[in-house]
Amino acid sequence: MAIHSYTSRRELEQHSFPPAVTILVPLVAILFQALLPRPFPRLSILELPLIVTVFFAVSRRSPIAGTVTGAVIGLLQDALTGQPIGVNGMAKSVIGYIAASIGIQIDVENLTTRLLINFGFCLLNSVLLFLINRRLLGLPDFHILWMHELIRAAINAVVALPIFMLLDYTKRRE
């Protein structure tokens, strides 16, 4: 009988995913993000790629993996927009890094924790996009509506809970 020994919390709860899930889940999230607002315009408030980024980052608990995952998802998202490529890439790289770092420290299996981290990362995403557009791209007319962003963060935090639970089934059992 094999004996497992764990030396840290990080080692205890680090998860991995099958390659198909790693590739398909972000693609499906981006696809739904592009498809849903057409028949249901109000659903453009969702940020499915952000939710997927946070999920993979906190599940893998590797800052480098989280950064790369966020960068790839963000760049794919940018390629579908009319914006310069890299705006969402940079924002989600930072979020992936921070989410993975937080995942090492706290228990991310708890529902309340998941709700809070999704709310917080959605707000952080808005702030990062505002800074990148306003400071890096030099768009002086770029404004941010804070009440709208708070509502968006709350909605995404709620929507993230069932998505996280669904994606929990894709974790590789070792």
């Binding site: 890299g86 790289s93 890094y97 990148i132 030099g138």
Partner: peptide
């Protein structure tokens, strides 16, 4: 500090790409 370096490298690459595009 490999994690931080990885983050900075990725951000730097995207910043340069943004600058080139703009």
């Amino acid at each position: 500090f490999k994690n931080v370096f990885a983050l900075v490298a990725i951000l730097l690459a995207q910043t340069i790409a943004l600058a080139i595009q703009v």
